[in-house]
Write a protein that binds this DNA or RNA. Structure first.
Lengths: 340, 340
DNA sequence: CTGAAAGCGCTTACAG
DNA sequence: CTGAAAGCGCTTACAG
């Protein structure tokens, strides 16, 4: 190794790579960006020089000339930590960050400030990012929809109301997921299927009830009673209690979340009701709560980490000006365990 | 359709602001960066122009000339989601992201790839970031310590082994937190205090045992039995069962985490042991598990979101070349509820 | 105290 | 196919 290799002035530049490879920096740039017009022998010389110098392109310089920040913001609600018994955000973030790290977009987390909601919007429209992923709660979604043509955006949940302008959303098909879980109950011979629904002012809550209903009527059965919770274990337990108190005959419960199902299971045990013998339970979402409950839950896996990745992919296509469908569905799968 | 460009040709530049304010762009730059040498009337003219044009500095251009990326990486383990019943990471990330958003550093999430651990290190040393926050598990910490003089770094947990080179860590004082919880038990007249410890190959596990011991011996008492778990509710329940099976007299338990305490509480209820009357329980960490258990837990609040903010602050000082203490303690507080 | 000017490290028309 | 050159939008010595 010659002393020329050890550059003193810090990071090697395009210029240095070009000098070593015996070409201009324009050519180095072309090779690095994969232009196919460069002669093979030059490509090789450049690649060798890049490897030898451990050249890494300067993002700021590239950004400046391309007029792209190469950054993507993921907008999440401030109060997230309080609901973090629900691993949802953590999983999306992780999936998105992992996928982003394999591309040349950097993912940055933007926490919505409850005190100053405008701040987030100003950031997004201030040219700080090439695009944004919106994972906010329903209530703040409409405000972002307005910005959707100032900066490319992909939403992680469908808005409750139809939107004036065309937007892009990536999510699981909640109706289908509920159909899958409920149909499984039907196939196991259950005929009196109640539901513990999610909040009925959220898309997930509404869609999952719809799926439950449609699977039941497809089977020629009558829907059992419905009680709603707020996705937490405690609310699931309370809903289960109300279902029991209602006195209607029930041989199965479809719970709109594993957390609520876990709470329901506890209540059922208290009453010495055998699961699945007396009452079978199927739910949606596969996480800590579905695996550590007694018995473990038969549930629909939403592959939330994959949803994170698909969100990023979809946004990148939007940024690149490609045609993107208004809705991209992330596939889900039924996981059979002992509760059915 | 892409022709909504009625806004005077894209983002305003320094040049445009200068033109409107009647000064050179050098002066605008000085005002924006708060140099005190500028005449008040010019400062005002510039500020007005900035407001009027809604000027936002171009980060890439600034980055390029300052030779700073203005980015900070937060390195977290890949397997995080699996342990996400523990809200720890979510809270640190949230605290860090919120604080960072008030500064001109952008926080980016770097998930360690289990498949290619070198990748993360290459990213960090490739000039992509001005500094890094390391929240990895103990096992991978030593590899990062090696990089600590290639790029500024702050660690979220103290390394188990003494390190060759000087590093900087920000964390709660785990010994002190355990002393606080245990002393509270002592003050309420408990004399036979057992502990459900964390994993004894982690700094938090070790330090909390030490705090428990020292509070007990300070009180002139003898330590009760010790059983270790792995911070999950299930492991806490099992440890509690072993404590009971051991047959030693116990009138209090110090659990090294709220999650383990929650598991212990369930086991105690199964045995119809009254809490706190028969056995008082104090723990560490204030989250979903401490508030939703029956009864709610008396526990030490670790203020994890604040830890996230302090991590960022400390790193920024390091980046700015300031003198930083090797250890920065994040303050904790005792929260009294019904379990003691 | 202020401005003209020289870059920071890239990309990309434009010639050849 | 390749290179010389003109910027991208800032900051900061350097004069005045």
């Amino acid at each position: 190794m010659t002393s020329e290799d050890t550059v003193e002035g810090g990071k090697p530049t395009l210029e240095a790579v070009g000098a070593l490879a015996g070409v201009s920096r324009a050519t180095v740039s072309r090779v690095i960006n994969g232009y196919s017009t460069v002669k093979p022998e030059m490509v090789e010389a450049v690649n060798n020089a890049v490897a030898q110098l451990r050249y890494v392109p300067n993002r700021a310089a590239r950004s400046l000339v391309r007029r792209r920040t190469q950054m993507i913001a993921m907008v999440i609600p401030e109060r997230t930590a309080e609901f973090f018994a629900d691993p949802y955000f953590a999983e999306v973030i992780q999936g998105a960050a992992m996928y982003a790290s394999s591309t040349d977009h950097t993912l940055t987390l933007l926490i919505e400030s409850d005190a100053d909601p405008e701040k987030t919007r100003r950031y997004l429209t201030g040219g700080n990012v090439d695009g944004a992923l919106i994972l906010s709660h329903h209530s703040s979604v409409p405000a972002y929809v307005e910005l959707a043509d100032a900066v490319p955006m992909v939403f992680g949940v469908r808005p409750l109301e139809p939107t004036a302008r065309q937007i892009h959303v990536v999510d699981v098909d909640n109706v289908e997921a509920a159909v899958t879980a409920t149909r499984h109950l039907v196939e196991r011979g259950r005929t009196h299927i109640a539901t513990i629904a999610g909040p009925l002012d959220t898309a997930a809550g509404i869609d999952r009830v719809q799926g439950w209903r449609s699977a039941i009527s497809d089977a020629g059965l009558t829907p059992g009673p419905l009680e709603a919770g707020n996705f937490t274990p405690a609310s699931g337990g309370e809903a289960m209690q109300r279902l029991l108190d209602g006195g209607e005959r029930i041989d199965a419960v479809f719970a709109a979340s594993a957390q609520m199902a876990a709470g329901a299971l506890e209540v059922l045990r208290t009453h010495s009701i055998r699961i699945p013998y007396d009452i079978a339970v199927a739910s949606i979402d596969n996480n800590y709560f579905s695996t550590s409950s007694t018995p473990p839950l038969t549930t629909v896996d939403l592959d939330t980490a994959n949803k994170g990745a698909v969100l990023v992919k979809t946004l990148q296509r939007l940024i690149d000006g490609e045609e993107v469908a208004p809705f991209t569905a992330v596939p889900t799968t039924l996981v059979e365990r002992q509760s059915v």
